[in-house]
Protein backbone atom coordinates (compact mmCIF):
# COMPACT_ATOMS: atom_id res chain seq x y z
CA UNK A 1 0.00 0.00 0.00
CA UNK A 2 2.85 2.38 0.87
CA UNK A 3 4.52 1.52 -2.42
CA UNK A 4 1.24 2.23 -4.24
CA UNK A 5 0.96 5.64 -2.59
CA UNK A 6 4.56 6.43 -3.44
CA UNK A 7 4.00 5.43 -7.08
CA UNK A 8 0.85 7.53 -7.18
CA UNK A 9 2.72 10.55 -5.77
CA UNK A 10 5.42 10.09 -8.42
CA UNK A 11 2.80 9.85 -11.19
CA UNK A 12 1.23 13.15 -10.14
CA UNK A 13 4.54 14.93 -9.46
CA UNK A 14 4.36 16.97 -12.68
CA UNK A 15 0.83 18.12 -11.84
CA UNK A 16 1.40 19.54 -8.37
CA UNK A 17 -0.73 22.75 -8.34
CA UNK A 18 1.72 24.84 -6.30
CA UNK A 19 4.62 23.81 -8.50
CA UNK A 20 2.63 24.55 -11.66
CA UNK A 21 1.64 27.97 -10.32
CA UNK A 22 5.27 28.81 -9.50
CA UNK A 23 6.36 27.62 -12.95
CA UNK A 24 3.63 29.65 -14.63
CA UNK A 25 4.77 32.77 -12.74
CA UNK A 26 8.36 32.24 -13.83
CA UNK A 27 7.34 31.48 -17.43
CA UNK A 28 5.05 34.50 -17.80
CA UNK A 29 7.54 36.88 -16.16
CA UNK A 30 10.41 35.66 -18.35
CA UNK A 31 8.30 35.73 -21.51
CA UNK A 32 7.07 39.28 -20.84
CA UNK A 33 10.71 40.39 -20.50
CA UNK A 34 11.75 38.50 -23.64
CA UNK A 35 8.78 39.92 -25.56
CA UNK A 36 9.83 43.41 -24.48
CA UNK A 37 13.45 42.96 -25.57
CA UNK A 38 12.33 41.77 -29.01
CA UNK A 39 9.68 44.47 -29.17
CA UNK A 40 12.08 47.40 -28.72
CA UNK A 41 13.97 46.11 -31.78
CA UNK A 42 10.79 45.72 -33.82
CA UNK A 43 11.15 41.94 -33.78
CA UNK A 44 7.99 40.55 -32.16
CA UNK A 45 7.63 38.30 -35.20
CA UNK A 46 10.85 36.50 -34.15
CA UNK A 47 9.76 36.17 -30.51
CA UNK A 48 6.48 34.57 -31.58
CA UNK A 49 8.06 32.09 -33.99
CA UNK A 50 10.61 30.78 -31.50
CA UNK A 51 8.14 30.65 -28.61
CA UNK A 52 5.58 28.73 -30.66
CA UNK A 53 8.19 26.26 -31.92
CA UNK A 54 9.36 25.72 -28.33
CA UNK A 55 5.76 25.17 -27.21
CA UNK A 56 5.18 22.59 -29.95
CA UNK A 57 8.36 20.69 -29.06
CA UNK A 58 7.46 20.79 -25.35
CA UNK A 59 3.98 19.42 -26.12
CA UNK A 60 5.54 16.63 -28.20
CA UNK A 61 7.93 15.75 -25.35
CA UNK A 62 5.03 15.64 -22.86
CA UNK A 63 2.93 13.48 -25.20
CA UNK A 64 5.81 11.02 -25.62
CA UNK A 65 6.43 10.99 -21.86
CA UNK A 66 2.77 10.31 -21.05
CA UNK A 67 2.49 7.64 -23.72
CA UNK A 68 5.74 5.81 -22.99
CA UNK A 69 6.04 6.22 -19.22
CA UNK A 70 2.32 6.11 -18.50
CA UNK A 71 2.49 9.26 -16.34
CA UNK A 72 2.69 13.01 -16.96
CA UNK A 73 6.15 14.50 -17.19
CA UNK A 74 8.75 15.86 -17.20
CA UNK A 75 8.53 17.17 -13.65
CA UNK A 76 8.62 20.87 -14.58
CA UNK A 77 6.62 21.15 -17.83
CA UNK A 78 6.35 24.96 -17.97
CA UNK A 79 10.04 25.41 -17.23
CA UNK A 80 10.62 23.02 -20.14
CA UNK A 81 8.73 25.45 -22.39
CA UNK A 82 10.90 28.35 -21.19
CA UNK A 83 14.10 26.31 -21.52
CA UNK A 84 13.25 25.28 -25.07
CA UNK A 85 12.38 28.89 -25.96
CA UNK A 86 15.74 30.12 -24.67
CA UNK A 87 17.44 27.32 -26.60
CA UNK A 88 15.59 28.28 -29.81
CA UNK A 89 16.59 31.93 -29.28
CA UNK A 90 20.28 31.18 -28.65
CA UNK A 91 21.43 32.40 -32.12
CA UNK A 92 19.91 35.80 -31.33
CA UNK A 93 22.06 36.03 -28.20
CA UNK A 94 25.06 35.07 -30.34
CA UNK A 95 24.09 37.75 -32.88
CA UNK A 96 23.87 40.31 -30.11
CA UNK A 97 27.39 39.27 -29.10
CA UNK A 98 28.63 40.06 -32.63
CA UNK A 99 28.26 36.96 -34.83
CA UNK A 100 25.85 36.96 -37.80
CA UNK A 101 23.49 34.05 -38.31
CA UNK A 102 24.67 30.97 -40.21
CA UNK A 103 22.88 27.96 -41.68
CA UNK A 104 24.15 25.57 -38.98
CA UNK A 105 22.16 27.55 -36.39
CA UNK A 106 19.11 25.60 -37.52
CA UNK A 107 20.16 23.07 -34.85
CA UNK A 108 18.50 25.48 -32.42
CA UNK A 109 14.98 24.22 -33.14
CA UNK A 110 15.18 25.45 -36.75
CA UNK A 111 16.10 29.00 -35.75
CA UNK A 112 16.42 30.13 -39.39
CA UNK A 113 14.15 27.75 -41.31
CA UNK A 114 11.25 28.25 -38.87
CA UNK A 115 10.63 31.71 -40.33
CA UNK A 116 10.02 30.37 -43.83
CA UNK A 117 6.95 28.27 -42.96
CA UNK A 118 4.11 29.39 -45.27
CA UNK A 119 1.66 31.34 -43.16
CA UNK A 120 4.39 32.40 -40.72
CA UNK A 121 3.42 32.86 -37.09
CA UNK A 122 -0.27 32.18 -37.74
CA UNK A 123 0.63 28.75 -39.10
CA UNK A 124 2.90 28.05 -36.10
CA UNK A 125 0.08 29.18 -33.80
CA UNK A 126 -2.31 26.71 -35.40
CA UNK A 127 0.20 23.86 -35.05
CA UNK A 128 0.83 24.84 -31.42
CA UNK A 129 -2.90 24.80 -30.65
CA UNK A 130 -3.21 21.32 -32.18
CA UNK A 131 -0.15 20.02 -30.30
CA UNK A 132 -1.21 21.43 -26.92
CA UNK A 133 -4.78 20.24 -27.43
CA UNK A 134 -3.57 16.73 -28.25
CA UNK A 135 -1.57 16.66 -25.01
CA UNK A 136 -4.50 18.02 -22.99
CA UNK A 137 -6.81 15.33 -24.42
CA UNK A 138 -4.34 12.59 -23.46
CA UNK A 139 -3.76 14.10 -20.02
CA UNK A 140 -7.48 14.47 -19.39
CA UNK A 141 -8.06 10.82 -20.31
CA UNK A 142 -5.21 9.80 -18.03
CA UNK A 143 -6.58 11.85 -15.11
CA UNK A 144 -10.08 10.49 -15.73
CA UNK A 145 -8.63 6.99 -15.67
CA UNK A 146 -6.95 7.69 -12.33
CA UNK A 147 -10.24 9.08 -10.95
CA UNK A 148 -12.12 5.95 -12.05
CA UNK A 149 -9.41 3.77 -10.59
CA UNK A 150 -9.68 5.55 -7.24
CA UNK A 151 -13.41 4.89 -7.02
CA UNK A 152 -13.30 1.25 -8.14
CA UNK A 153 -12.81 -1.39 -5.37
CA UNK A 154 -9.39 -3.03 -5.46
CA UNK A 155 -10.75 -6.43 -6.54
CA UNK A 156 -12.43 -4.88 -9.58
CA UNK A 157 -9.35 -2.73 -10.12
CA UNK A 158 -7.27 -5.85 -10.63
CA UNK A 159 -9.41 -6.68 -13.68
CA UNK A 160 -8.74 -3.35 -15.36
CA UNK A 161 -6.37 -3.41 -18.29
CA UNK A 162 -3.97 -0.48 -18.73
CA UNK A 163 -3.75 1.15 -22.15
CA UNK A 164 -0.55 2.50 -23.65
CA UNK A 165 -1.31 5.95 -22.20
CA UNK A 166 -1.76 4.48 -18.75
CA UNK A 167 -5.55 4.85 -18.93
CA UNK A 168 -7.46 1.99 -17.35
CA UNK A 169 -10.14 0.21 -19.33
CA UNK A 170 -12.58 -2.54 -18.41
CA UNK A 171 -12.00 -5.75 -20.43
CA UNK A 172 -14.59 -6.24 -23.14
CA UNK A 173 -15.82 -2.64 -22.93
CA UNK A 174 -15.37 -0.41 -25.99
CA UNK A 175 -14.10 3.12 -25.46
Amino acid sequence: MTADRSASRTSFRALHPRSLLAQLTILVTAEVLLFYTYSVHDARFHWATHFLVALIVAAAVMIVHLTVRGAPGPRFPLILVLGLHLFAMAPDFVFRAGAPHAAWMDVFLGHLSAHYLPGGDKAWLLIAIVAVSAYVVLLTRWLHGRAVEATVPSAASAQLAPTSAGILRRPGRRR
Binding site: F35, R44, F45, W47, A48, L52, L55, D121, K122, L125, A128, I129, V132, S133
Partner: peptide, 12 residues
Protein backbone atom coordinates in the same frame (compact mmCIF):
# COMPACT_ATOMS: atom_id res chain seq x y z
CA UNK B 1 -4.22 29.35 -25.35
CA UNK B 2 -6.74 32.20 -25.51
CA UNK B 3 -4.09 34.56 -24.11
CA UNK B 4 -1.49 33.20 -26.54
CA UNK B 5 -3.83 33.65 -29.51
CA UNK B 6 -4.54 37.23 -28.44
CA UNK B 7 -0.81 38.01 -28.14
CA UNK B 8 0.09 36.52 -31.53
CA UNK B 9 -2.89 37.95 -33.40
CA UNK B 10 -3.07 41.39 -31.77
CA UNK B 11 0.50 42.21 -30.71
CA UNK B 12 2.60 40.60 -33.43
Amino acid sequence: LAVLIAVVVLLV
